[in-house]
Nucleic acid binder design. Structure first.
Length: 875
RNA sequence: GGGCGAUUAGCUCAGUUGGUUCAGAGCACCUGCCUUACAAGCAGGGGGUCGUAGGUUCGAUCCCUACAUCGCCCA
């Protein structure tokens, strides 16, 4: 006993058992005859560090994987990292800048060398951190989205889709990030409401004295105006038909046009049209055949074509434009205005809608099977509310801009020769052959080819993840892909439902003809107490590794899961891992108690212990059924809470208290072995949630052979149980609780033995011995009628008495009984209101009426008992 | 602006195909205990007219309508 500390110390056990599991290769999977259970990790950014979102995400996956492993599945959890094109490139650019090196001064090759160096230096840290959490990933299968197999998979898919005519190149309005100097997808733009100004500017009408007034938030783009527009139904502007106006600051004449798009109620009802810099204007421009004038450079400065403020940054240009308009007398007024500003998710720079030549993947056709899979439940989304959200997105899906003006990523395999003509091929050599054929120029050499400078969107590699993880693109018929695909469940955050989940489903159908996973489990976002998203800049995110060091990995896992109902955000605070740690400590001390029992095989098993074992087995079976149900619905926090209560309340709080021998005495052998059996079973139930402490205890519980581990034991299966028996025990618990209350109220010390009196039939089952044991009774006496000078309580329809030496306070007892009587009579009145209602009696189902009649009878009996007791006391 | 969802105890959430003694849990809170596994503990306790107003029904926290508030997604 002295060598086992009273507080569980997690750190030592954690490193010990994790190394043991690794050394024995328990996480590794190879195809065999068992049913597979596969999960591919949502790959974290290769140079990222673990944050609370990863903790939640990976704890969840580990719980599912460990449970499945214990259920006999061949489990395979594939880890890996994502090259995170924009994020990583931005970090490398910043790092180089801090060393005085600008990206534009480097060649592509030199820059990529730096990027790889950075990746090798910082890459994989996050995976090491996951090991601290206990993640049972198959580390022998660790992947990277830019490793050779994944790289070639991406290129192969690009070529294939291009050949199928689904990838095309075109000029489109894209979201331009002037800081990263790249296009970003619609999904990477975050809109927030920001304060801005609305400028009222007048445009002179050509050939007349008058003006039209336009309201705009962007005076600097006036330089790119190619029309002014009003709604055709707006009579205020009917006279403008066929006229032209002069754009201020330039002397350009542009037409006044009419389009339904314009909202007459907004501003002056008159809109300036800048097709190069607004998506709606662009579409109006297409309808009316307007010219486009791009007034910005790629870095957000004003371009030559602006004609004014050339080379000046767009924000400064806005100020200058305001001044200039004022000077020209064209600025009529300026109002404060709140509008939605789109910013780049990565750089937070204000997105500029910009026309540019990009690569696109057409989505319509791919979206169809992906939508059907969700609608017909081939793939189940949990929580189901996202089904609608998904459908809405898929029905309105737009083509995916897949090119990025970056270097870090999969370079687009298009090779240009001559005048903008190009071929798409896996290598330069192959491209040369194709180009010679296509161009009819046999003398073309490698030097004449120029590969596209752009790389592909990061998601263009991660959408292949469940297939590429098993090399199913390069070798579509290899044993791994055939065995592990489709995977079982994808665990991720709802914010990447479209970015990633939807596209994986599309790729799954396109390249395997099958869904990539059967379930999608979307967990919440980790926030702080004030519901703010956890972020580095806010400094409100705890450091996961220090949390593990403080509370233990098991404690942190429990803390994460406890507050994580599916689909709801979790409000994290440190009391949660603290609760987890406390639970681990509780388990530890229960174990400590059990192994320090002295046992004596000659002692006969007490009746209370025998009853306790029977009840505990029933309680376990019931809880196992509940846990199964919770897991089936991905109610993981519920499953954990069920196991938590089973261990803490039922096993520690109740069972152990019943079987615990009196001080100094030994435990009978039978109860001892039953208790060990039960503890072992509980460890297996808890193992998926708390892998370390359960392994530590399991290993200490008996002789274990080298190579044995609780993680490879079978999860107990829910067996039959007798609900009536469990109910009898609940009554027994209520009686115990009531007697304890009397002890407390009457100040009766625990050591003093009491007598419990009850009418025949009120007790007398297998749990009497438990009541005697837990209440420290000398006996349960069967009596008839009332007992004078006794404290009383009522459970269901039975009345119980505890005689007290010095008698009881009559007045107080009368008061209590009167309160109880008033409440009970009130209840009877509500029952009678129903039963006296003819319509209720004639309409309600028989079952319900029978129940109400039983309520009535029981309540009347109880009232009679209370009244009798009162008259007894008042004598 | 369009769509989706939510509103139940101080906090975070369960719940009911509308009827089991008039709503449960965890945490927090209050009271009493250093009782020989555990004070990271034990025993006991308080706390909700289920967002508001109508409607359907014998009966509504649950179904319908409107309103209010909040959140998410899309434009």
């Amino acid at each position: 006993m002295t060598e086992i500390p009273s507080k569980y110390e997690p750190l030592k056990a954690e490193s010990k058992w994790y190394s043991y599991w690794m050394e024995k290769g328990f996480f590794h999977s190879v195809p065999d005859e068992r049913e597979p259970y596969t999960i591919v990790i949502p790959p974290p950014n290769v140079t990222g560090v673990l944050h609370m979102g990863h903790m939640l995400n990976n704890t969840t996956q580990d719980v599912l994987i460990r449970r499945a492993r214990m259920q006999g599945y061949n489990t395979c959890w594939v880890p890996g990292t994502d090259h995170a094109s924009i994020a990583t490139e931005a970090k490398v650019v910043a790092k180089l800048r801090s060393e005085g090196i600008e990206k534009r001064d480097l060649s592509r090759e030199a820059f990529l060398d730096h990027a790889w160096e950075w990746t090798h230096k910082h890459g994989g840290i996050i995976l090491e951190q996951l090991k601290r959490l206990g993640a049972s990933c198959d580390w022998e299968r660790t992947l990277f989205t830019m490793d050779d197999k994944r790289y070639s998979s991406v290129i192969k898919v690009f070529i294939d889709l291009y050949n199928k005519g689904m990838i095309y190149r075109g000029v489109r309005m894209v979201n331009w990030d002037p800081q990263a100097r790249t296009a970003v997808s619609d999904e990477e733009v975050v809109y927030t409401e920001e304060k801005s100004k609305l400028y009222y500017v007048r445009y002179k009408i050509v050939g007349e004295e008058g003006y039209v007034m336009v309201a705009t938030t962007r005076p600097e783009t006036i330089l790119g105006d190619t029309a002014v527009c009003a709604n055709p139904s707006d009579e205020r502007y009917a006279a403008m038909k066929g006229k032209h106006v002069i754009v201020p600051m330039t002397d350009r004449e542009v037409p006044f046009i009419f389009d339904e798009y314009v909202d007459p109620a907004f501003g002056t009802g008159c809109l300036k049209i800048t097709p190069a810099h607004d998506i709606n204007d662009y579409e109006i421009g297409l309808r009316h055949n307007l010219a486009t004038i791009d007034v910005f450079n790629d870095d957000g400065t004003m371009s030559e074509r602006a004609g004014l403020f050339i080379g000046i940054d767009r924000f400064r240009a806005k100020e200058l434009a305001e001044e200039e308009l004022r000077r020209l007398g064209a600025l009529v007024k300026v109002e404060d205005y709140i509008n939605k500003i789109g910013r780049s998710e990565r750089t937070h720079s204000v997105i500029e809608p910009k026309l540019s030549l990009q690569w696109f993947l057409s989505m319509k056709e791919m979206a169809k099977p992906a939508l059907d899979a969700i609608l017909n439940d081939t793939i189940t989304i949990v929580p189901a509310k996202y089904k609608n959200v998904y459908r809405h997105w898929m029905e309105n899906v737009r083509d995916w801009c897949i090119s990025r003006q970056l270097w870090w990523g999969h370079r687009i395999p298009a090779y240009y020769y001559g005048n903008g003509e190009f071929v798409v091929a896996a290598s330069a050599e192959e491209a040369l052959e194709k180009a010679r054929l296509a161009g009819g120029n046999k003398n073309l050499s490698l030097d004449d080819l120029k590969q596209d400078e752009d790389v592909l969107d990061t998601w263009f590699s991660s959408w292949l993840w469940p297939i590429a993880a098993f090399d199913g693109i390069n070798k579509p018929d290899n044993p791994d892909i055939n065995y592990y695909y489709p995977t079982r469940v994808l665990v991720t955050a709802p914010e990447i439902l479209f970015f990633w989940v939807a596209r994986m489903i599309m790729a799954g159908y396109e390249y395997r003809g099958k869904e990539p996973f059967s379930d999608v489990y979307l967990h919440g976002i980790v926030r702080d107490r004030q519901r703010r998203k956890m972020s580095k800049s806010l400094g409100n995110s705890p450091e996961p590794i220090s949390l593990i060091e403080k509370y233990g990995a098991d404690g942190v896992r429990v803390g994460m899961l406890l507050c994580a109902p599916a689909g709801n955000d979790l409000l994290f605070e440190e009391t949660l891992p603290e609760q987890g740690r406390n639970f681990a400590n509780k388990i530890w001390n229960a174990f400590r108690l059990i192994i320090t029992f002295k046992t004596d095989d000659n002692i006969k098993q007490p009746a209370a212990s025998e009853a306790a074992v029977r009840w505990m087995d029933g309680a376990i079976n019931k809880t196992l059924a509940d846990i199964d149900d919770s897991f089936a619905r991905y109610r993981i926090s519920d499953a954990l809470m069920q196991a938590y209560k089973l261990f803490w309340d039922d096993f520690s709080g109740t069972y152990l208290e019943i079987i615990k021998p009196e001080f100094g005495k030994a435990l009978d052998g039978r109860t001892h072995s039953e208790t060990l059996r039960i503890l072992e079973m509980l460890m297996r139930i808890l193992h998926p949630f708390m892998p370390f402490i359960t392994e530590e205890i399991w290993q200490r519980m008996g002789e274990r052979t080298d190579g044995s581990s609780i993680m490879n034991e079978m999860m107990p299966e829910a067996g039959p149980y007798d609900p009536a028996m469990l109910n009898r025990f609940e009554t027994c618990r209520e009686i115990i609780s009531a007697v304890r209350t009397i002890r407390k109220e009457k100040n009766l010390p625990l050591r003093e033995k009491l007598v419990l009196c009850a009418a025949a039939g009120s007790t007398g089952n297998e749990f009497d011995s438990v009541i005697i044991r837990m209440c420290n009774l000398s006996e349960i006496r069967t009596v008839e009628g009332k007992i004078a000078g006794a404290a009383s309580f009522r459970i269901h329809t039975s009345e119980f008495f505890v005689p007290i030496d010095e008698g009881i306070d009559h007045e107080e007892e009368i008061k209590k009984l009167n309160e109880e009587l008033a409440y009970t009579e009130g209840f009877l009145a509500s029952v009678m209101a129903k039963l006296d209602n003819e319509k209720f009696v004639s309409n309600a189902p028989e079952k319900v009426i029978a129940l109400e009649r039983k309520k009535e009878a029981d309540t009347r009996a109880r009232i009679a008992t209370l009244k009798e007791s009162l008259s007894h006391l008042q004598k």
